[in-house]
């Protein structure tokens, strides 16, 4: 490893991060497997209710494979994961893989749109306001910006979702109240998912912009009399991105959780609303798969952000290996 470090420090960084990603995925698999097994009492009885007969419980236990030894259960679980066989939902009587295949795209649609909106909105707003309020200029604009974003950061996405739903769906009646239909039905879910993180991120981008603008290298860049476009996009933006991406990754992870809430408000047919129903009905195969899925998504986002950070800021790659 030492030779590798000397020759290709960045390669070693990527290798380490990939290894960490694979290990944490494995841990996630184990956790999702263990989850059902550590439920106190008999989960099958809990799911079927007190009216269930011994016969029913025995059949369901066998269906879930809970009658075998723990090791062979784990082995079957791993084998099934590799073949994409995730069991059958108890309540929906449908293969879990089918449920995920039909519902995951709906979640990914609003989550990715929300992430895009968040990034575009916050980076442009943060840069613009940073440039505008640099050196204590326009204190009134600064105050109203920090006040507005401060308020928006505090509003949790589900309250915002309910508020939007009331104003635009019920009161004004210009957007569909709930459920997925045409493109207008995307507006409110995406808005409620992206507005709070965009507010938080644009505050950070503004502060980072101010920070970058005060640095010596900006004086050097200004001494070259570059047009404002190059000054901000080439010299400020890359220096702002490191912190932005770090928080952006956290926000994206938060988005995954946020979809659960927002999908519930708007009855959006994604996996977020599905997991809530599955928990209420103790639909263990479905819960297990969805926990694994959401967890892996979080791990994946963290991994991608790490790799991107290493690429953008080569110093961080060397520092953190």
């Amino acid at each position: 490893m030492n030779g590798l470090r000397q020759r290709h420090p960045s390669l070693e960084f990527y290798a380490r991060r990939s290894l960490r990603f694979v290990l944490s995925l494995l841990a996630m698999v184990i956790v999702s497997f263990a989850m059902i097994r550590v439920i106190p009492g008999n989960p099958v009885r809990a799911q079927l209710g007190i009216t269930a007969t011994e016969q029913e419980i025995r059949i369901r236990t066998r269906e879930l494979g809970l009658n075998q030894s723990l090791l062979s259960q784990l082995w079957t679980y791993l084998g099934h994961l590799f073949t994409g066989h995730l069991g059958t939902s108890i309540t929906l009587q449908e293969p879990v893989s089918n449920i995920i295949a039909t519902r995951l795209p709906n979640t990914l649609e609003i989550a990715s749109m929300a992430f895009l909106v968040t990034m575009v909105l916050s980076i442009s707003a943060g840069l613009l306001l940073g440039a505008f309020t640099n050196g204590g200029r326009h204190p009134r604009t600064e105050l109203s910006f920090t006040a507005t974003t401060g308020l928006l950061v505090t509003i949790p996405e589900f309250v915002l979702a309910v508020l939007l739903q009331y104003v635009f769906g019920v009161k004004l009646g210009i957007l569909p109240i709930a459920e997925k239909s045409g493109w207008t039905s995307y507006i409110m879910p995406v808005a409620s998912l992206s507005i709070p993180p965009a507010a938080a991120l644009s505050r950070l981008v503004r502060v980072e912009t101010l920070n970058a603008l005060g640095r010596d290298y900006m004086r050097t860049a200004r001494s070259k009399r570059l047009p404002a476009r190059l000054l901000y996009l080439r010299h400020v933006l890359p220096n702002v991105l490191t912190a932005t991406l770090t928080l952006g990754g956290l926000l994206l992870v938060g988005l995954i959780a946020g979809t659960v809430l927002v999908e519930t408000v708007f009855a959006w047919p994604g996996i977020g609303s599905t997991i809530v129903q599955a928990i209420e009905q103790k639909d263990y195969p479905l819960i297990q798969a969805l926990v694994l899925l959401l967890g892996s998504m979080v791990l994946f986002v963290n991994f991608v952000v790490d790799i991107l950070l290493g690429a953008i800021d080569p110093r961080s790659a060397i520092r953190t290996t």
Binding site: I39, V253, I256, A257, I275, I287
Partner: peptide
């Protein structure tokens, strides 16, 4: 550092399954 980035809601879902809602 690793667990900091894990959303609390997912942990809550996980615990809700084990200790019950």
């Amino acid at each position: 550092n690793f667990t900091v980035s894990f959303p609390g809601l997912l942990l809550a879902i996980f615990l809700a399954v084990i200790v019950g809602v």
